[in-house]
Design a protein around this nucleic acid. Structure first.
Length: 455
DNA sequence: CCACTTCACAACAGGTACTA
DNA sequence: TAGTACCTGTTGTGAAGTGG
């Protein structure tokens, strides 16, 4: 296993293009003295910091009956942008998909020069229960992928966005409304550059707990890297002892065992992810019924010590069986592309067996479900009906797919109610949530990502 | 089939223009 | 004049194309 890991590393090193050469006075990123990227805990802490500040500030102003101050408007805008791009509550979206988001009711595509017929653009809708749903058509380059990303946001973020739409955005509009969900303080749509600088400005202005403001791409990479590191660590710890004796009995190495003898790695993987999601959902339901209030603390003991890895494992993976770990190894060593068809078929079977449980797999799998662009389709036998169903069920799921940060920051969020909870959409969300989930814990839920397959 | 090349796009950073 | 937005060049990445 160790050799395997190192060979995989060597392979990746040899096949990756070298980064640009360092300037003479530039610190080598491998140098221990180089500033480390923000950890998941730090990111979460900063999110909490922003929300608390917003809560405190807005509460005063709302209770005073006046309009929001300029700083509150900016703070609200910053909070929304931060939560959409930082990867704390949802996986980091591409800036372009966020910039092109339109307001509810806006039917035109905001992508300049969009060639698609009747393109709805990147839409944002507030569902009847207050949950915000995103449908992102423009999330990457044109013409390569046609599958839009569909995502239901967690209740917390939905509430914040509803507040932004009702109280903040109208104050940002100057003259004609361009229809963009996010507007700069000057009332214009964000350009690529202005979004980039605003994202860094947020970190600088509101005291992010890391040394220098980081561009959003680093948070995107950080999210992906953390999940990968978590995976490698799990493999490193548990795979060798499990696989070795089995491989030895067959007279070959673990590498040969997985790569040459195990068939249908992808489908096994997919099936396991679906199965695990079902278990996860079942557990969540049991918790709700049992009225367990302390799930977080119990599940995340030790999370504080381990930092990012814990965080990632909560997001992307949960307790997974050994079998799944085994498959991961194989995939990782080499791509078995020829198996894709088989994999899809099997994926569909699994989904049927699970009777809709697949809708949750994005939260319980190994991260594949989080991949917003293409991998998500691999395990799906999606049809339109299913998607509609997913929308409905997704609202329920929102309460179940907990991020389970196990962080003090999360607990801190529960301490006081956000003042923007009183607004109509948010109130509806709260009512639905109260019906569906007896416990009022403010746990951010995993968003629902659905990948639509066309043709 | 695989490795390599090409192309297009996203993002960053620095400079410049604009505006309150 | 400071803050903000825009423009442009550079770099990195992924997908498609091509040749052995």
């Amino acid at each position: 296993m160790e050799q395997w890991l190192s060979s995989a590393y060597a392979t990746s090193k040899s096949t990756q293009p070298l980064s640009r050469t360092l300037d003479p006075d530039e610190l080598d990123p491998d140098d221990p003295a180089a500033p480390s990227p923000p950890t998941a805990d730090e990111i979460s802490l900063f999110s909490e910091q922003l929300l608390d500040a917003l809560c405190y500030q807005v509460e005063e102003e709302v209770s005073g009956g006046g309009d929001l101050s300029k700083s509150s408007i900016q703070l609200s805008l910053a909070s929304v942008v931060w939560l959409l791009l930082s990867g704390d509550v949802i996986p980091t979206l591409r800036p372009i998909s966020v910039r092109l988001l339109s307001t509810p009711g806006c039917t035109k595509c905001l992508e300049p020069g969009c060639a698609r017929r009747q393109c709805p653009g990147n839409t944002l809708r507030v569902l009847s229960n207050g949950i915000v749903k995103l449908e992102l058509v423009h999330f990457k380059m044109e013409g390569r992928r046609n599958q839009p990303i569909r995502m239901q946001l967690p209740p917390d973020l939905s509430t914040l966005i509803s507040f932004y739409l009702e109280r903040v955005r109208p104050a940002l509009v100057r003259g004609g409304d361009p229809g963009n969900f996010l507007l700069t303080t000057a009332g214009r749509p964000f350009s690529e550059g202005s979004m980039s600088s605003f994202f860094k400005k947020i970190q600088a202005d509101y005291g992010a707990p890391w040394q220098e403001p980081r561009p959003y791409l680093q948070f995107r990479h950080g999210y992906a890297t953390n999940s990968y590191e978590s995976l490698v660590e799990r493999l490193r710890v548990s795979a060798p002892e499990v696989l070795k004796p089995r491989a030895a009995a067959m007279g070959h190495t673990t590498k040969t065992h997985v790569n040459s003898y195990v068939q249908g790695l992808h489908s096994i993987h997919t099936a396991a992810a679906v199965k695990e999601a079902a278990q996860r959902r079942k557990q969540a339901q049991q918790r709700v019924h049992a009225g367990e209030q302390e799930v977080w603390g119990a599940e995340t003991d030790g999370a504080e010590e381990e930092g990012e890895e814990e965080e990632e494992s909560d997001w992307v993976e949960s307790e997974e069986g050994e079998e799944e770990q085994e498959e991961e190894e194989g995939e990782w060593e080499e791509e078995e592309e020829g198996e894709e068809e088989e994999e899809e078929e099997e994926g569909e079977e699994e989904e049927e067996q699970e009777e809709g449980e697949e809708q949750e797999w994005e939260g319980g799998g190994d991260g594949a479900g989080w991949e917003e662009e293409d991998e998500g389709e691999q395990g799906w036998g999606e049809q339109e009906e299913q998607e509609e169903e997913q929308v409905e069920v997704g609202e329920e799921k929102g309460e179940e797919g907990y991020k389970q940060g196990g962080k003090e920051a999360q607990e801190g969020r529960e301490e006081h109610q956000r003042p923007f909870v009183g607004f109509p959409a948010a109130a509806a969300a709260a009512a639905v949530a109260a019906e569906q989930e007896p416990e009022p814990k403010r746990e951010p839920a995993l968003p629902i990502i659905e990948v639509e397959r066309r043709g």
